[in-house]
């Protein structure tokens, strides 16, 4: 579903991505671990089309990113570290807005269903977003991704700042999405969450993927050890 071949990206002569290659299959949750500045966000930005690679190719479902076609846009959703939505709209209105700009018009019941599925309690659906906590915003972000029915969901540090309960709910939502065949590509610092939610893990350092492993082959302690040795 996702494929990176020798991606290269530099900023002012400093390599942010150094010939990285990887592949993520449909229904997989790929967690990219690494310190700040390792190149995780650059990788996501590149797939989302926010930046262009200096060299190499990136594909989503066989379609090259550089084409920038609208069919590519349809295939992906994005949940940033801080899901920033419109504060003057309610959670449901935000979901409706972001669905409509993606070309989907859902009835209120359906929108409510998406929000519930993403873990947002029902009494919050019609509250203005300005009163939401970070965790609640993240859930609206997930609902936006669900409603878009995108094949690939990119997540950039999505659990950062979430309380344990919210993190557990978030993890559950991700697993449910993957179970429906969605592919998740997540950049994170959180080793334990990566092991818990991911199916495959990549560890980045200075723009390169140093290690890549399946979560079935490793536990959190082993991963922590490898991670600390790598960075």
């Amino acid at each position: 579903m996702l494929k990176a071949i020798n991606l290269l990206k530099s900023y002012n002569g400093k390599k942010a991505l150094d010939n990285i290659s990887f592949q993520v299959e449909k229904g997989e949750i790929y967690c990219l671990l690494g310190q700040n500045g390792a190149g995780k966000t650059t990788t996501i930005n590149l797939f989302l089309g926010f930046i262009k690679p200096d060299d190499g190719n990136a594909f989503i479902d066989g379609e090259e990113i550089s084409t920038g076609t609208s069919s590519l846009n349809k295939k992906m959703a994005y949940i940033p570290e801080m899901v920033q939505l419109y504060g003057n709209l309610s959670g449901m209105e935000n979901l409706d807005f972001f669905s409509r700009i993606a070309g989907f018009k859902y009835p209120q019941e359906k929108l409510s269903e998406f929000l519930t599925k993403a873990g947002l309690q029902e009494d919050a659906h019609r509250q203005q977003l300005s009163s939401y906590s970070k965790g609640m915003r993240q859930k609206v972000g997930i609902a936006v991704a669900i409603a878009k029915n995108a094949d690939v969901i990119f997540m950039d540090e999505p659990t950062s700042g979430l309380d344990p309960k919210a993190m557990a709910e978030f993890t559950e939502s991700c697993k449910e999405l993957a179970a429906t065949g969605k592919t998740i590509f997540m950049a994170t610092h959180d080793i334990f969450n990566a092991v818990n939610v991911g199916t495959k893990i990549g560890i980045m350092r200075e723009g390169s993927i140093i290690h890549e492993m399946l979560t079935t082959d490793i536990d959190a302690n082993e991963l922590q050890k490898i991670y600390l040795e790598t960075i």
Partner: peptide, 18 residues
């Protein structure tokens, strides 16, 4: 600046129309 634009960019079929 607030970060909404990235969500809009990924979601929107046409940023120009937006």
């Amino acid at each position: 600046e607030s970060g909404t634009w990235r969500m809009v960019s990924v979601q929107s079929k046409s940023l120009f129309k937006h």
